[in-house]
Design a protein around this nucleic acid. Structure first.
Lengths: 150, 150
DNA sequence: CTATAGTCTATATTTCTAGTGTACTATGGG
DNA sequence: CCCATAGTACACTAGAAATATAGACTATAG
């Protein structure tokens, strides 16, 4: 599951990748319909993880800790949501056993979910904030197609 | 997320696919470490969805409503968990808009998550209860490899 | 020294998950 | 007809997680 938390985090990062200098939390919040205080907590988590840096006081704000093309969506989801995998027992980074499986290594469901996790990671770990921003949505694609036909 | 509910449901179906005749809920529950009453609710949902049939009274029980190779994991997750997609706005079958997106069609996050959903569906919709049962786990693969080397 | 803007701690609200309890209904066999 | 078996319906709850919110505190520029 992609929670609102991670979604907000990604939106904030896209925002920060768009503007040059430091951005105010307030500005990020209002421009992206994110509850201010909730965003604060998210920004702090990202800062603690080294994704963002911040400066206090007048003229302060947040900015990216490294270039937008060096931050992947997968990283952000792992930081904010804890895991990519659809089930904890299939997570590489946030593993937790199920209590109903006597022999986890032989669990076919877990095994299948590891395949799912891998295919998710393949997409999410190669998508950066930068490429996410530059991504053309399906609507764009449809519009292009229509334009090409016409 | 794959909830316990869906996991239990898949286990129950694998159980039913293994034995010929109708199985008792009690038997499925104890053999798979599933809380009995919780399983009851799951089996009823699967029955209402046409995946299972049941017979009451002495000699009764549950059995598959169609061959195990005609039931996909994707179907079961959609029935029991509601959706495959990591976020509701990217779901094909259980769509729900986010309330923070003014222009959903242009949301790059949603678009990315649709790609993720598609790649999950690609795996889950082609995996049947039958193929799930027959799946060799990574442990098996490792054992084989070791055996081949030795 | 003061307005600004991030930080910390605690708390509230809502929703979902996972599970339980009780009573009821249908069926087959004696 | 009765009774044990086995599924069905419905109500409910405890606990966790998601989604915020409030308020006091701290650092900094000017």
């Amino acid at each position: 599951m992609l929670t609102s938390k991670a979604k907000y985090g990604l939106k904030a990062l896209m925002h920060l990748a768009t503007y040059e200098g430091p951005c105010l939390a307030e500005e990020i919040a209002t421009e992206n319909n994110i509850p201010r205080k909730f965003l604060d907590a998210i920004l702090v988590e990202l800062r603690n993880a080294g994704i963002l840096t911040s400066r206090r006081g007048k003229g302060g704000g947040y900015h990216l800790g490294r270039p937008a093309d060096k931050i992947t969506v997968g990283q952000i989801i792992r930081i904010l949501d804890g895991s990519l995998a659809p089930i904890a027992c299939a997570s590489r980074t946030a593993y937790r056993p199920c209590n109903d499986c006597p022999n986890e290594e032989a669990c076919q469901i877990r095994d299948l979910m590891m395949d799912v996790r891998d295919s998710m990671a393949l997409i999410l770990d190669r998508t950066t904030i930068s490429s996410l921003k530059g991504r053309s949505t399906r609507k764009d694609a449809k519009l292009w197609e229509r334009a090409r036909r016409s």
